[in-house]
Design a binder for these strands. Structure first.
Lengths: 186, 186
DNA sequence: ATAAGTATACCGACTGGTCGGTTTGTTTGT
DNA sequence: ACAAACAAACCGACCAGTCGGTATACTTAT
């Protein structure tokens, strides 16, 4: 490699920031390049098309989810059947700037070409399978999991009516429900 | 009135169909006009801007939700504290072509201008308030409600991994949980 | 009754601008 | 020297919105 470069990550960050600022349907390559402090040519060198850029955004989103989930699993010293579910929920309740920006990748990709979300479907499918394989009962486990997703989606569209306190209460109740599921299993 | 015309509804239907076919980020006025069997000028006459069109799509989506919910409330002859919640869930599990197309309005509006979703936020806030005012406990009621939303959103992005059988099981369990909530309240 | 005037509903060519992608040229590390 | 990494001007397609015009119905004055 001629010159060590982290341009790809810088550009991906810039892309998320642009989506945040101008909306998912107005993420143009020129804006992303400017935001990243790179020329159009530099962007095209790293990502040969807009689709390639969006694909990379989705890939990074998925990888980040697995990293966050893994971190949460390690935090839970007790590793019962609900570990994957709990970790997924804790991860999705984490919402620093980085996470909320990354969610916007979903909207950007969906606006340009819904097919780009296919890897996300695969990942979600795998996550669901892991949750269920650990021995939880399908329906109640899915309801808790879907509830976390629902909240995440409302926030993704910036439509959530819940304040921090309410969010926290909901999270607590979710974790309590999972504990209950684990007890019933024994 | 010079001549009765239902062009507006025809155009709104066409807009939804176009979003369905080409994706939320590629809904152009020309395509909508062509789909509706109307000229560009005819479209602009009925909706003076793209924003106006998208706003009307969101408005119709909200109104349709209330209509569907009302219908479900009437179907439930027993009207316990969980009536609004149950009706909302039953309505969101209904997914004929019309409903799933209308959901796409959210993506189209969000892609063009996220601010267009403000009325949706108001409506959702009101729906949540109505559910809670009827006397249900906040956390568990919200979890069931959010789970239905979560499933709806996954389907909106066409990422749901659940088949009809699993969907039905989840719905049944949701209704059971609400019954349980009503019993505990007495 | 009817011609003139007016409002509604719609048409389609055109314009200014945006955006994805290309091409060509330049710098920089090894 | 040479390839990787970028810069910058440019191209063509697309697209939102404009505008002058048309057609049909409704209203009014005679």
């Amino acid at each position: 490699m001629a010159r060590k470069s982290n341009s790809k990550q810088v550009i991906l960050d810039a892309a998320e920031a642009v989506v945040m600022e101008v909306g998912a349907g107005h993420m143009s390559l020129d804006l992303v390049a400017k935001k990243a402090g790179v020329s159009k040519g530099g962007l095209m060198y790293n990502f040969p098309s807009k689709e390639a850029l969006l694909k990379a955004m989705i890939t990074r989103l998925i990888e980040q989810f697995y990293v966050d989930r893994e971190k949460k699993i390690k935090d839970l010293k007790k590793s019962g059947p609900g570990a994957f579910l709990k970790a997924g929920i804790l991860a999705s309740f984490e919402h620093d700037d980085k996470r909320s920006r990354m969610g916007l990748s979903i909207l950007a990709a969906s606006a340009h070409n819904p097919g780009l979300l296919e890897p996300l479907k695969q990942a979600y499918q795998a996550h669901v399978k892991e949750m269920l394989d650990s021995g939880l009962k399908f329906e109640p486990a899915e309801i808790v999991s879907l509830a976390a997703d629902g909240l995440m989606f409302w926030e993704l569209f910036r439509l959530s009516p819940f304040n921090e306190n309410q969010r926290e209460k909901i999270k607590k109740e979710m974790l309590r429900m999972i504990d209950q599921l684990e007890v019933e299993k024994e």
